[in-house]
Design a protein around this nucleic acid. Structure first.
Lengths: 213, 213
DNA sequence: CAAATTTAAACAAACGTTTAATTAATGTGC
DNA sequence: GCACATTAATTAAACGTTTGTTTAAATTTG
């Protein structure tokens, strides 16, 4: 027995997480079908049988990758929203948080968007699209409120949401393109605090000009 | 021999194009590795050996899908640009055209973005990213010009480009999401002239507010 | 010792591709 | 226009690999 019997750790926690980390990165880059158990095992320095041992199957591993991050995403959603401030303050706040979350979880977000677009595994698609909808409603509700309170002009909330998520998704899911646009040599450089802040400032500026009456 | 020997048609033109049509749709939705020759042959109503017969290999078929559409894309780029009009007119014109092109070639654009993001096949990535860069420079040059002429305020051209392409890419590559947002039941409904025009109007509105001094 | 982990080997199924035989279409000489 | 040779198109079957998964033995751990 290698496992540490602890209330804090699941059995096999470290190795499972090590596999999940590699799996997330690979699934994000090459898609479900583009990742073989053997290549994954090689990169994670494990025997190919360990995937079945820990997760049962490749599809279960894929689901496990998603569910692990879903816990994090759910925490985001239940986080306390700042009470004070008007619609503008709330919008700026949520943009800041959203950029950080998307950048920090960009591998995962890639998997989510790809999975939802492919419509291959119905139950996963349903599950993920609900979570995406929750996220978008956070923006949507904010914009509707802002319009009601008179802080924002009357815009189509859904197009407003797309104007935030669109550029941000482009930023986190196309490092090759972004590298060129940002004049950076490494992928990490693209997501340094400099460019993050640049994106935050831009999205806030863009939405300010778009929403102000 | 079935082929019609004609200057207008390549030998086997119709069947090749029939295979390419199905291949483009499937590669777009499931990715290169997600498409098997057998499933493709079934959907295209051909024998599995026909892919090798016409294209040599699966990867060559993939390249053929890309190259076929590249001819169309190149035509777009060499099209005459309207001479009259100021920076605003040109911007509105190019947005209208770009939305139509992206929507009409959405399967292909999906393949392009996925391929560039995966960085799997270096020579294809290089080739495609150059074409993408050309497209983006069309926007970029326009914005820089507009700033110089005083029609636009001084913005970061690259972030401006991302603000156009981002929402548009979201629109054409996530029909599942868009179906919900647009309250449409079918994918075709999402790309009807109604929603196309809606997207055009929105992007023009968005950029107007973003760029006006 | 006993239970959990790790391993190498083997499994059937699916993969891309090739083969050899068959069918369909065209060109040629008359 | 017809028979025949030729070339192209199409097929079913088989090829060798790679796939995800399982097995049974070996190793590590408590």
């Amino acid at each position: 027995m290698k496992k540490t019997i602890s209330i804090l750790n699941d059995p096999g926690f470290e190795k499972k997480d090590q596999i999940l980390d590699v799996a997330e990165a690979l699934f994000s880059k090459h898609g479900f079908d583009g990742v073989s158990i053997r290549s994954l095992a090689k990169q994670a320095n494990i025997n190919i049988a360990m995937v079945s041992y820990y997760f049962g199957s490749k599809e279960n591993l894929y689901i496990a990758v998603i569910e692990r991050k879903m816990v994090t995403i759910r925490q985001y959603l239940t986080e306390a929203f700042p009470n004070g401030g008007n619609a503008w303050d709330k919008l700026y706040y949520i943009i800041d948080r959203y950029v950080d979350r998307m950048v920090d979880n960009r591998s995962f977000m890639n998997i989510v968007f790809t999975e939802v677009a492919s419509e291959n595994r119905e139950h996963i698609v349903d599950f993920l699209s609900k979570r995406l909808a929750d996220n978008q409603e956070a923006f949507g509700g904010l914009i509707v409120e802002g319009i009601k309170s008179g802080h924002f002009r009357e815009v189509d909330p859904q197009l407003a949401i797309m104007s935030i998520i669109g550029p941000l998704k482009l930023y986190v899911s196309n490092p090759f393109m972004v590298k060129k646009m940002m004049n950076e040599n490494t992928i990490e450089g693209c997501y340094s605090s400099v460019h993050r802040d640049r994106m935050k400032a831009h999205l806030k500026d863009l939405m300010t000009r778009f929403l102000k009456p």
